[in-house]
């Protein structure tokens, strides 16, 4: 064989082989499942339906053994009052553990504020909880691998592994993490992982008489939450942080922080 022929046939073989190998690239089933798992928990809040009764907060605290009178909570409800002058006044007394029963708005150091009914342009309640982000900032900053995201998108804390450094509390843009006064580790909403994994709904969802809170599987096209997220106008909190939050709000105002 001449050198020219050898180089020619070698070039043909290499180009042909490279095409066929790239065409036959074998996909790992695990890789595809990880990219689009069958289960991705998401939460839907309808702020029009929320009446600020705070049963969700009480239910959550009892279900998850958070001391009732401690000034920490996994979920809370905020009241927003927008005045006709354009002021935004908000409060959340005890995280709305006992609901909203007074029209005096708690302004901390500056005392209780009373706004006359005739000055109110809009007033509504916004329940808050962990957003179980797709790219959670709190997980990235954990130095020991104590907080993590499960395959179905829930962000959890390993209580035996947390050293209580508090980086994640600072890292969370939504302020949902706190130091558990009894367990002495960082604590946060788990989407009631023990309930949703066993066919129940979360403590806050089951406690809400008005259906303002729902939890569902974003990957199931028949799921009411997935349907609402796909077909209705929903918003998320602090989109600009790039954390891809998975708590969706119907009727979210730009005044809500």
């Amino acid at each position: 064989m001449k050198r020219r022929d050898f180089l020619k046939s070698a070039a043909v073989f290499v180009s042909g082989a490279s095409v066929s190998i790239s065409a036959l690239e074998i996909f790992e089933p695990g890789e595809i499942l990880a990219a689009a798992p069958e289960l991705r928990w998401a939460f839907l809040v309808d702020t029009y339906k929320c009446v600020g009764c705070g049963f969700c907060v009480k239910g959550c605290k009892i279900e998850n053994d958070i001391p009732l009178e401690a000034n920490v909570t996994r979920t809370w409800v905020e009241r927003y009052v927008l005045t006709k002058d354009g002021d935004v006044v908000a409060d959340s007394p005890k995280g709305a553990l006992n609901g909203f029963t007074s029209n005096l708005i708690d302004q901390n150091a500056s005392g209780m504020k009373k706004i006359a009914d005739t000055d109110i342009a809009q007033a509504f309640f916004v329940p808050k909880l962990c957003n179980h982000c797709e790219t959670p900032a709190c997980v990235q900053v954990c130095p020991v691998g104590a907080t993590y995201q499960t395959a179905d998108g829930v962000v959890l804390v390993d209580r035996t592994w947390c050293i209580g450094c508090g980086y994640c509390i600072m890292g969370c843009p939504y302020g949902v993490r706190f130091f558990h006064p009894v367990e002495k580790v960082v604590d946060k909403c788990t989407f009631c992982y023990h309930r949703i994994s066993n066919g129940q709904t979360t403590a806050c969802v089951q406690a809400c008489p008005f259906g303002a809170r729902q939890i569902g599987n974003l990957r199931d096209p028949g799921d009411p939450v997935a349907k609402a997220v796909l077909t209705q106008r929903v918003g998320v909190l602090r989109d600009e942080y790039g954390t891809k939050p998975h708590v969706f709000y119907i009727g979210l105002n730009m005044e809500v922080r």
């Binding site: 600020g52 909203f100 109110i120 007033a123 309640f125």
Partner: peptide, 15 residues
């Protein structure tokens, strides 16, 4: 009871 039945002026809310 007053969690829901305390009268508050909350337009744009179910309250």
């Amino acid at each position: 009871c007053v969690r829901c039945h305390s009268s508050l002026f909350m337009p744009s809310s179910g309250r």
